[in-house]
Design a protein around this nucleic acid. Sequence first.
DNA 1: TGTCGATCAGATCTGCTTTGTTCACGAGTG
DNA 2: CACTCGTGAACAAAGCAGATCTGATCGACA
Lengths: 157, 157
Amino acid sequence: MNKADLIDNVSDRLGHSKKDVTDIVDAFLHETKKAVAKGNKVAVSGFGVFESTARKARIGRNPRTGEAVKIKATKLPKFRPGAEFKGVVSGAKKLVEPTAAKPAAKKAAKKAPAKKAAAKKTAKKAPAKKAAAKKTAKKAPAKKAAAKKTAKKTTRR
Amino acid sequence: MNKADLIDNVSDRLGHSKKDVTDIVDAFLHETKKAVAKGNKVAVSGFGVFESTARKARIGRNPRTGEAVKIKATKLPKFRPGAEFKGVVSGAKKLVEPTAAKPAAKKAAKKAPAKKAAAKKTAKKAPAKKAAAKKTAKKAPAKKAAAKKTAKKTTRR
DNA sequence: TGTCGATCAGATCTGCTTTGTTCACGAGTG
DNA sequence: CACTCGTGAACAAAGCAGATCTGATCGACA
């Protein structure tokens, strides 16, 4: 399967023209590449995170001749799959249709998460009380964390 | 940077509504996840390849207690960045705007690859002579590789 | 037609993955 | 815009599995 197949599927499902889908997908990929190339981390919730990673210089090998070759230090794109993507690939999760899908699929999508939410509510009730008790205490550290985060961002750029 | 930022940038650049861009991007990501979850390889030229990879069962460790824990065999999403993405992140390549960008950008895109082609030609001349000398020796392994490749394709589907 | 991606061997390096908690942020909905 | 819920990051130790990379060629794709 390749980009063109994906674009066909998207065009069929949403009823947008293939040209529009292609243009938008290409632009999305382009913006992703651009951001990562600039050293930014690109987080797509549920799908994964694209970022650049540094590789040190090392010795490689030409597989044809066996000759050792020096590989320079460089930067590479790296992808860390998100939880949903992992869950779907491993089979632990079912893939839920996006909300913009056809109305029939939309109803199905609502039923599936409802079951999950019910299961998780019971699990969360006990810690929710603790969270409420600690809410006032949390405001102060939140500011510190924010300060740390801005510091990290500035160093990155 | 996150999905919403990318969508803003795409919407600004192409003049499509944010809703359309969001719907199309979500569908594209969904189709990608779906295909990989089914065991298909998804190749997006210039960007990279998404596929699933198997992880064997092994022993991990609970970092809290130091206790050994069995990690089950599973399947994971994997991304292999394409040449252009790698080149852009490493700085070896300049990022070319997609063809649906504004007409002014289209002219700039044509000029940039012309310079590169000239640079690559000079780089290729020296190794080309060596390749010619070894050409006869290489024909035999090439056939074996082809045979292996067809075998792999049949097993996958 | 030109570019991209797969393939090959081998040695080295990197990353994965475990549990559980907390917090910040993002996404989606009303 | 506000609110709620979900996602993701961070952290700990350890060891092994997996990824990385090269150059040249060939097949597939845009």
